[in-house]
Simulated assay, not measured.
Amino acid sequence: MATLRNDFHNKFKDGDIPTHLDFVEIFDNFVHKEDDKANFQMVETGTDNEHYITPALLKAAFQNAGIIAGNCYVPIKNFQDDFSGSSIQLDPAPIADSAKVYKNGQLLKEIDDYNLNIDSGVITFSAPITNRNIETNYWAKNADTESSDPNTDPILGSLSVPFKENFDEDTFNNDKITLIEIPIKDSVRIYKNGQLLREGIGKDYVVNYNSGIITFSAVVSDRNIEVDYWYKSTVTLSDLELNTKYVDLTTPQAIGGNKTFTEAIEAKGFIKSGGTPNQFLMADGSVSTSPGSDYDAGHAGFGILGFGNGGYQKFSNGLILQWAYLTNNTNTYSFPLTWPNRALSVVLSTVRNTSGSRGFNHVYSITTTSYFAVIDGTNGYMFAIGY
């Protein structure tokens, strides 16, 4: 338990001379600049309550939240030239299912050719190997948080993105490749006609991880080249504007401004804030509360006898067309659809091939549901416009 300040004050009161133990107690109660400073491993463990955290370490902890959560990793390459033996110790240990082991560039098969202990990081081969080049590519937990060290490549919370570049044997003839993106250290894998090449001075190629330039030991021609690597995304865990700068499929977001898309946008559905399932999204971004049938262009049946003896068609502006085939002489008929407001015009005609006794057709007693039609024959047509 820490000694209170007043207790220290009393040790020097009235000319008292502090003892050796008093000075030990005083110094043990002060924080030492170096001895008591926490490191990232203490933050990651989270059990120490006796050390202080600097602002720089706090920033690193926030930026590397993925490391603390145990899901931020970096690529590792392990080389064993002219290897002879039956086992290899990997340091740091790989994460599960990330390791690939190559013997002279040929991919080995786990279980059949070797076994890997994830906890200890030991690779044990099924049979002793003599004078073969062994390369192990894998991912390990990122424990590097010091961005000021020029010899390190901390991802510092950045999201990593896989990338692939291919060069065809008919067009590639060069000893250099400049990658589109700057690769993460040790993430480059190069295959020549499917054979893994070896990275390093005096081997098949070297990579400048600052410029993204790959230099082969000799000009490569008439060969298919594939370069696989990872690069740092511009999105970081410390980006305070992440939710406003990038579209996320699960986080609630408000996206504003005018957007220009380079190709057609496809989606299973568009949802407007405050919208309901029975509304329609209009081209101007507004919603319509009209029933779904208002926008069903094929709602009305085609032909004289569509929907019984008539049919109708609605338009998005509210206009409605109705038609019917009349079969009961002069009579009262019902409209195929009740007018929401009223009919604007009703036109009649008679079906006959000679002049009728009356020689005319007319209509009256028009309501929202029916009309009285005078037709000069047994059969006739009705056409109406309304809303």
Rank of each mutant, 00 (worst) to 15 (best):
M1E: 14
A2R: 08
A2E: 11
F8S: 07
N10H: 10
D14Q: 12
G15Y: 06
P18W: 06
H20A: 10
F23T: 09
V24S: 11
I26T: 11
I26A: 11
N29S: 09
F30T: 14
F30K: 04
K33Y: 09
D36N: 14
A38N: 06
F40L: 12
F40Y: 12
Q41P: 00
E44P: 01
D48A: 12
N49I: 13
K59D: 12
A61M: 13
Q63M: 05
V74W: 02
P75L: 01
N78W: 00
F79H: 08
Q80L: 09
S87T: 12
I88L: 05
Q89N: 10
L90M: 08
K100V: 09
K109C: 03
I111K: 08
D112Q: 08
D112R: 10
L116T: 05
N117V: 04
N117S: 12
S120V: 03
I123A: 05
T124C: 04
T124H: 06
A127V: 12
P128D: 15
T130R: 09
T136P: 01
N137M: 09
Y138W: 02
N142L: 14
D144N: 08
T145F: 15
S147W: 08
S148Q: 12
S148I: 11
P154T: 11
L156T: 15
S158D: 06
F163H: 14
D168F: 09
F172P: 06
K176P: 00
I177N: 03
T178P: 00
T178C: 00
P183M: 02
I184C: 02
D186S: 05
I190G: 02
Y191G: 01
L197H: 03
I201L: 14
D204R: 03
V206Y: 00
V220R: 07
N224M: 10
V227F: 04
D228W: 14
Y229R: 03
T234R: 07
L237I: 10
N243I: 04
Y246A: 10
Y246W: 14
I255L: 15
G256H: 03
N258L: 05
T260K: 10
F261L: 15
F261T: 13
T262G: 12
T262A: 10
A264S: 12
A264K: 13
I265E: 02
A267G: 11
I271C: 04
T276H: 09
F280C: 00
M282A: 09
M282N: 15
M282F: 00
A283Q: 15
A283N: 12
P291M: 01
S293C: 05
G298V: 03
H299V: 07
G301W: 01
F302W: 09
G303D: 07
G306I: 06
N309Q: 13
N317W: 08
L319M: 07
I320S: 09
Q322E: 06
W323N: 07
A324N: 10
Y325K: 09
Y325M: 02
L326P: 01
N328K: 12
T332G: 00
T332D: 07
P336I: 02
T338P: 03
R342I: 04
V346N: 03
V347D: 05
R352N: 11
G356E: 05
F360N: 13
Y364C: 03
Y364I: 00
T368I: 15
T369Y: 07
Y371K: 00
Y371N: 02
A373Q: 01
V374C: 01
I375S: 01
I375Y: 01
D376L: 02
Y381N: 10
G386F: 08
